[in-house]
Design a protein around this nucleic acid. Sequence first.
DNA 1: GAGTGGTCTAGACCACTCG
DNA 2: GAGTGGTCTAGACCACTCG
Lengths: 257, 257
Amino acid sequence: MSDAHQALFGSGAVLLPQGGPLYLQLKRWIEDAVGKGLIQPGDALPSERDLATRVDVSRVTVRKAVQQLVRDGILVQRHGSGTFVAPQPHRVEQSLSQLTSFAEDMARRGMAVRSVFLDRGVYPPSSEETMVLGLSPGERVARVARLRISGDMPLAIERAALSTSVLPDPGVVETSLYAQLEKTGNRPVRAIQRIRAANLAEGDAELLEIPAGAAALHIERIAYLASGKVVEFTRSVYRGDTYDFVAELRVGESARK
Amino acid sequence: MSDAHQALFGSGAVLLPQGGPLYLQLKRWIEDAVGKGLIQPGDALPSERDLATRVDVSRVTVRKAVQQLVRDGILVQRHGSGTFVAPQPHRVEQSLSQLTSFAEDMARRGMAVRSVFLDRGVYPPSSEETMVLGLSPGERVARVARLRISGDMPLAIERAALSTSVLPDPGVVETSLYAQLEKTGNRPVRAIQRIRAANLAEGDAELLEIPAGAAALHIERIAYLASGKVVEFTRSVYRGDTYDFVAELRVGESARK
DNA sequence: GAGTGGTCTAGACCACTCG
DNA sequence: GAGTGGTCTAGACCACTCG
């Protein structure tokens, strides 16, 4: 047992705060210990079986408390290894008024970023893609799906769809999609983004290496050329624990009625 | 048993898709049934005990599948009453470039909105409030916390802090905070918003009437007068299943480096 | 009072990690 | 091989809803 356990958990029984179901009492207790810094990021918690006997509850109850804290990003569990206080993720800010690409955005911050391509090819379009991109009948769609990684931490999943008229060969896209589009004069100058919060689905959670059910930002972007033509239709999923989007609001025409 | 059950669940055993843990198989199976419209919003599912015997798993396993679907907003459970397919929430869009107040925003849409005050008073400021609002030593802070409700559905929690120099008596705030500020010439003209996704905490979840752990948008707003003085510091929590924030992005100076 | 979800237990077996 | 988290069971009792 580590020193941290000795200090925090002692070797004997644990007294929970009263009120409500046991698993919530235990959850609050652990949350407080982390909040007060009694256990630091990276520190191991006692094993679930250990905790169960000390707190004098069943292991199922311990797991219910612990798993909620995992979902909330307070703890991390590693199968076969143990349960730990989650490292403090450094948050990344992104502007909601400047139209930039992910690659350029991170480069400006001096952050090392790489992408893993999940998909890069030409497909028959979905009806949604046909509509949004304004594709002609029979025209196909170029898809570029990437996992964005900074250091060794996955940050976001980006799934872009473009008309093959602006991107005939998605295979040429390297780090920056916008840099590629610029070469043919098809870099967008304007975009509409729709942002919402949703719990991470199983598959996306695996890619982002965080538990399913964790909160994520889902962003839908439609980008336009100066001519008004739609160039890009992208759905992205950003980790909720690392991303802040920043917007500047002003009093405008429609705002004052 | 209702007709829907007869059609979907039959009266006998259920065959799950294969692969992975039982609770995920069951989760996928229910999710598919809802996705395909085999069970409609409002329809009841068989009871947990019923499902357990039909699918031939334990009730704990059924609950694990069902509770994830509840968290994801697919199902709702009512204690003592049953488990139902969640009603389709109509989504609300809000601009991220126009500085408007919630009350005015909803009025423009013709939506009936009311507020329940959670708090409205004058307090000694937190150190964060002192810093952000630029309070003088000894100056106190006006707090206005509201639960925003449309129809009978809670939409958001808004917790605003203002200098008492612009809002000496928070008790006078009725439907619109900005309308009140306008009377004294203290309506903000500009604001910075910081948006992130996070899982709902216990208390906020109760107020918004959705399960703890559901994804929500957390928004921090700092609003300024034309003079540059900070008027308002507000933290809001919006339901992830009903809110879309919409931003328009443009190529700008800093974007092109 | 019958039925429902909410909590909790004691125990089992498996897959994984680590020295 | 010892220890850890991941899944699963059969059963219990409680609080709540509804006719």
